[in-house]
Simulated scan of single mutants.
Amino acid sequence: MSKLDPSFYSQIKEILLSARNKVYAAADFAMVEAYWKSIVEKQGGEARAEYGTKLIAELSAKMTLDFGKDFTVANLQNIRLFYLTFPNFYTMCGKLRWSHYRLLMHVDSRQARQCYLEECAKAGWSVRQLERQIHSFFYERLLSSQNKCEVSAEIQRTAPAEQPEDIIRDPSFSYR
């Protein structure tokens, strides 16, 4: 009877977890791209859509039948806001998920939003960690700090490790 070498198993486990993370991230970013390209881009990128809320309601009803309950009027309006907040797809980051972008859309300052986006991608913040940093004014603390490295290091010490299961719960909309 052979005994499984723990280090061998550990290596296999790490490979599988890494692959799972890559698949989750790729799937979620593909959905982010689909959201970005959806409603507003197909309407010519108009900030104020001429089609009004009646069309959004009709689109919501039809998409809910075809794709499930996540395509409510409010979610479609979030998709519009997403496009208007991030008009250049090339500036977006494949490391962030839809839930990250939903938080970032509500950061008023373009500079602060970009800072959060970059820090989040660089440090691998979870959605919960990004939300905590926005609410604790990380950007403002970083700007006013003499020691920017210490402010960033503080965040890493308080960030909980993200599990693969946390990455995608629903490929359409993730509301963590």
Score class of each variant (00 low, 15 high):
residue 5 D to M: 01
residue 7 S to W: 11
residue 7 S to Y: 10
residue 11 Q to L: 15
residue 11 Q to K: 09
residue 13 K to A: 15
residue 14 E to K: 11
residue 15 I to C: 06
residue 17 L to S: 10
residue 18 S to C: 09
residue 24 Y to N: 14
residue 27 A to W: 08
residue 28 D to C: 13
residue 30 A to G: 09
residue 34 A to I: 06
residue 36 W to D: 04
residue 37 K to H: 05
residue 37 K to N: 14
residue 39 I to M: 05
residue 39 I to E: 09
residue 40 V to G: 08
residue 41 E to F: 08
residue 41 E to R: 13
residue 43 Q to W: 12
residue 46 E to P: 00
residue 51 Y to Q: 08
residue 52 G to P: 00
residue 53 T to W: 10
residue 53 T to L: 09
residue 55 L to I: 13
residue 56 I to P: 07
residue 60 S to D: 03
residue 60 S to T: 06
residue 61 A to Q: 11
residue 63 M to D: 07
residue 67 F to N: 09
residue 68 G to E: 07
residue 69 K to R: 07
residue 70 D to E: 12
residue 73 V to E: 08
residue 73 V to K: 03
residue 76 L to N: 05
residue 77 Q to P: 00
residue 79 I to A: 12
residue 80 R to S: 09
residue 81 L to A: 13
residue 82 F to M: 02
residue 87 P to H: 02
residue 92 M to W: 03
residue 92 M to F: 05
residue 92 M to R: 04
residue 93 C to N: 14
residue 94 G to W: 10
residue 97 R to F: 04
residue 98 W to Y: 09
residue 100 H to K: 00
residue 100 H to Y: 05
residue 100 H to M: 01
residue 102 R to E: 08
residue 102 R to P: 01
residue 105 M to V: 05
residue 109 S to F: 02
residue 113 R to W: 00
residue 114 Q to M: 05
residue 116 Y to H: 05
residue 121 A to D: 05
residue 121 A to P: 11
residue 122 K to N: 05
residue 123 A to K: 11
residue 124 G to A: 00
residue 125 W to S: 02
residue 129 Q to K: 13
residue 130 L to N: 03
residue 131 E to A: 12
residue 133 Q to Y: 06
residue 138 F to L: 11
residue 138 F to I: 00
residue 143 L to V: 03
residue 144 S to N: 12
residue 144 S to E: 12
residue 149 C to S: 13
residue 151 V to R: 00
residue 151 V to G: 06
residue 152 S to V: 13
residue 153 A to N: 03
residue 153 A to V: 03
residue 153 A to E: 10
residue 154 E to N: 05
residue 158 T to I: 15
residue 158 T to C: 09
residue 159 A to S: 11
residue 162 E to A: 09
residue 163 Q to M: 14
residue 165 E to A: 09
residue 166 D to A: 13
residue 169 R to Q: 12
residue 170 D to S: 10
residue 175 Y to N: 13
